[in-house]
Amino acid sequence: MENMEKVQKFNGVIENVKSELRKDVVGQEDIVENVIIAIIAGGNVLLEGVPGVGKTRLVRSLGKVLSLPFSRIQFTPDLMPSDVTGTVVMQKDEKGNMKSVFRGGPIFANLILADEINRATPKTQSAMLEVMQEHKVTVSNNTYKLDEPFFVLATENPIEQDGTYPLPEAQMDRFMFKLIMKFPADSELVDIVKMTQITMDETAQAVIDGPTILEMRALAATVPVIDEVLSYAIRLVSNTHPELEKCSVAQKYIKYGASPRAAQALITCAKVRALMHGNYNVSYEDIDALAHAVLRHRIKINYNAVNDRLGVDEVVDLLIKETKKASK
């Protein structure tokens, strides 16, 4: 009974989060679900979409729902690393002596919205690397640990390429998911317009806190996954590597494949998804459902794919198909 209560609480929280987010974000159910999965799994998310689809609104609304300290960093080309991490300043103490004091940057929060992250310089982007992966900041040889749970939800605009700095592969690999927010459907747009006529502010309320997220994370981690499904996830990731010559799709369409973090992300997030859907085990369906979000920013398609008018998602579809065929 206790176990069931835990699961019921888990699913209850999820539903509450979703329902609160629906107040501010119209449609984008898949995006919302995946963001929640990533947060519970403890990963960072990269949101891509054209301006105005609700990327920033989703993150801000999420910040309210999670009742976690929220910080928004608007990345611009002149943004310095110290603007993100913080810096050491000289300050007079009570006695009038000058002493150096560390002033933490906006990164010192639980939920970070890194808006238009691709506009920042590589130097500034790399400052995010340590933070995103290790959840700590090092300034002047001093390391400052960030509070858990810590998430970075970054956004990028695919249209404005002038003056942008594509994220390096190393940083891209630190995002658990890359989610594409599409232009809303007409009916959704109607709802958006109606809603924003009332208020532009986010109205979602806090329904979850940090400890609860950590509890949910611990519960999700206990969801079992059988060896066959685990092997399938691993095969899917290794099939993205053309140099391994295991998969014809990779050899034809992929320039370089996903890192082992992709396999970790797949399994960790699949456990959360399984529990969210009322299942107590990870299935092939969970892996397939998360494959695009996990792989699309980790693999680089080649000119053959462009020539055949295949996007990265179509290539991932082909990878899934070939991996399933080989598994039988």
């Binding site: 699961v7 519960l219 079992p224 059988i226 066959e228 085990n281 990870v282 092939y284 369906e285």
Partner: peptide
């Protein structure tokens, strides 16, 4: 969706979710 396989694979292990 692999429920039975999971049940059989982990039948000798204990855990809240497993139960």
């Amino acid at each position: 969706h692999e429920k039975v396989q999971t049940m059989i694979a982990f039948e000798n292990e204990s855990g809240d979710i497993l139960e």
